[in-house]
């Protein structure tokens, strides 16, 4: 994530590891899929939000 910000990526969702940006092998299959779903939902929140500089969107509790 510090690299993404430094090179100027406009909207950044931090994840848990370089080898599995949209996963987490430490979790069970169901929990991992829920985590991935949360990341994509966070990405959807990011793309619908106006930004004027590199901005981090933390995966948080979502109602949808």
């Amino acid at each position: 994530m510090p690299i993404a910000i430094r090179v100027g990526a406009p909207r950044v969702v931090p994840t848990r590891g370089i080898p599995y940006p949209t996963g987490d092998p430490a979790l069970g299959p169901k929990e991992e899929k829920a985590w991935r779903r949360l990341l994509v939902q966070t990405a959807l929140r990011a793309i619908s939000t106006p930004v004027n500089k590199p901005t981090v969107f933390k995966p948080g509790e979502l109602t949808t």
Partner: peptide, 14 residues
């Protein structure tokens, strides 16, 4: 780890 479940690289399933 990515090859065990490629959705970990490209989140197509969700």
């Amino acid at each position: 780890v990515a090859n065990e479940n490629p959705n970990r690289i490209l989140p197509l399933d969700v």
